Simulated scan of single mutants.
Amino acid sequence: MTTPLVVTAHFVPAGGQFDAVHDALVPAIAAVHAEPGCELYAIHRTPENTILMIEKWESAELLDAHSAGPAVAALNAALAGKLASPVEVTRLEPLPAGTDMQGTL
């Protein structure tokens, strides 16, 4: 049995580029939701006016396939010149606690 994997990706738009970064992410979300193993792929605005993507993948292997796939390549091309810094991607290790429904993502 594989362990689901939660990932965050932090996007810091360059000055005046928030809407452009958001617009680049929207088509990627639909494309990635169709990929095998994608359980969650959602974006959120942070208080600092950056974008945090929260992802959940069925396995590390399927996440790796996604990372090397066409949706990520298209997203990277669409984001060219729009970010103040490279995207910071963090793979998180679950530490389940509480109920099955509330103790993990």
Rank of each mutant, 00 (worst) to 15 (best):
D23C: 13
V21C: 13
V26L: 02
T46I: 07
G16K: 05
R45V: 09
D23I: 05
V32W: 00
F18D: 04
E48M: 13
D23G: 07
A30I: 04
A31L: 03
I43M: 15
G37T: 13
G37C: 14
V26F: 01
G16D: 07
I43D: 14
K56G: 12
E35F: 02
Y41V: 13
F18K: 06
T50W: 05
K56C: 09
I43A: 14
A34I: 03
A28W: 01
C38P: 15
H22T: 10
H44A: 10
G37R: 04
A20C: 07
L52P: 07
F18Q: 05
V21E: 05
P36N: 07
N49S: 09
G15E: 13
G37E: 08
N49Y: 04
A24R: 00
I51K: 13
Y41A: 13
G15V: 06
I29H: 00
V26Q: 03
Q17F: 04
D19Q: 10
P27H: 01
Q17T: 12
T46D: 06
V32F: 00
Q17R: 12
P36D: 14
E48G: 10
T50R: 12
D19E: 10
N49M: 08
P13R: 08
C38R: 11
F18R: 06
G15N: 09
I51S: 10
P47Y: 07
P13I: 09
A24P: 00
